[in-house]
Nucleic acid binder design. Structure first.
Lengths: 244, 244
DNA sequence: CGAGCATTTGAGTCTCCTCAACCCGGGTGG
DNA sequence: CCACCCGGGTTGAGGAGACTCAAATGCTCG
């Protein structure tokens, strides 16, 4: 996966939120530390009190929670150009962790400086808020996915989301780099890895997808969308703030 | 359930977000329409383009989505003093609906005026953002709940959340007014109403709860918490914005 | 070439679902 | 004033989807 610079990462983030390059100038000037987190390492730890806010520049990551009997639930995936812990800028203690799926490159901005800047720049704060609103929409769809769809639909839906969100990094033919394990898919869909495996095999045998070696290819997009009951409205991709 | 005035509703909202009464003065001055929505009526309709933002003043409501084969999933409950569609202030089209559980009293603020005000008052925008962040935390916990807990734990967790959130409206002994049907509980926990019924009976027979006639009484809080793996950190109740 | 992780397969089990009927209380109309 | 009607709650029986446990296979990296 690509590796962005801090400026490129911010630019990608800004584009998604319909900010102009000028709007993010003040963010560019913020102090920031470039960090690397190895695969399986924690970017954010549950229970800790964060001091910074991390923009993902390379690699991919996911949010997870662990329940009392040890099971894990993944609640979201993150890719370059996304803040992985925007909530840290206002919430005092992490209620969940963020873990690296692959080696990750991050730009960490001190939350104090960021907060002070946003206070001065309502347009940027609005963008951060919008980002959070879109992420909340994503969580809502995931509640629906694990709550009301069967294994096959859950899996198809997740793959659809990944295909759409990673399209911008791919060659455009719904052939995406996606270094995910079946266990992670299981944790994201609320299933066991065994059942995930059998469900994947089902979709494979029908010729709908290929999924191996860190690559997902969707061969029949309309069919996969139909199986997953996928409506990309919830991603709010081309959404924009209303003119005031 | 109580019926608040616009000012009281805002005050309740502000208190949760650690704003002072002074901070919300500008909001009080906004134009607003008081509306009533009957039980089962829609406060927000999926697919529509909203023009206002609704603050709940009386009654209770829930967010829901419908999947293609007709099943419903409830993603959150809302009570007086909460905005039910904060996302409408920035997102252009509703990706889900909000429905009244009981007759609801609402104050609807035009989104243009609200947006203009927030642009002038960074402190208020920050509070709205914080509100959204907390709600996102709630959705995350729900993903975990429906994804990784069994029927008993799911139900217990939901009841714990309701007990904590409605405590402020109750007489303080975890005896709360909660006019919810078993079908709604089923839609919130991702189960069928039949299985919900049997699971409730299980908790009742063990003497942990009473749930009937629109009233929930938790007889054994520690036990219910343990069964539901409930950790109220995700509600971020006493959370506050960091000093900048 | 072996170690370690990820994937695959099999068999048996259990939770939760489906379908269907019945009960109960409250509101309504004859 | 009582019959009925309706929504919500309860019960039963049978089935299916997903889980558990266990082992084998394959892949990748050192």
């Amino acid at each position: 996966m690509i590796e962005l610079s801090y400026a490129e990462g911010l630019a990608r983030w800004a584009r998604r939120l319909e900010l102009s390059p000028d709007d993010i100038q003040p963010l560019l000037a913020l102090p920031h530390a470039i960090q690397t987190v190895e695969r399986d390492g924690f970017i954010v730890r549950e229970g800790e009190r964060p001091t910074g806010c991390a923009l993902l520049l390379g690699g991919s990551a996911f949010r997870l929670k662990v329940v009392n009997h040890g099971a894990r639930q993944i609640m979201a995936f993150h890719f370059p150009g996304e803040f992985v812990d925007l909530q840290n800028s206002l919430l005092s203690v992490n209620d969940h962790g963020v873990q690296a799926m692959t080696r990750c490159k991050l730009a960490v901005v001190p939350k104090k400086e960021l907060a002070a800047l946003l206070e001065r720049e309502p347009g940027l704060m609005r963008a951060m808020w919008l980002d959070t609103l879109i992420e909340a929409a994503l969580f809502r769809e995931w509640v629906v996915n694990v709550g009301r769809r069967n294994a096959r639909a859950r899996l198809a839906h997740l793959l659809c989301e990944l295909a759409v969100r990673l399209e911008e990094f791919s060659r455009g033919d719904r052939n995406i780099e996606m270094p995910i394990t079946q266990e992670q898919i299981a944790d994201a869909t609320g299933m066991t890895s065994v059942h995930t495996n059998r469900t994947i095999q089902g979709l494979r045998k029908e010729g709908l997808i290929s999924l191996s070696g860190g690559r997902l290819v969707v061969h029949d997009w309309p069919a996969l969308k139909a199986i997953g009951d996928f409506n990309e409205l919830y991603l709010h991709r081309a959404d924009k703030a209303p003119e005031v």
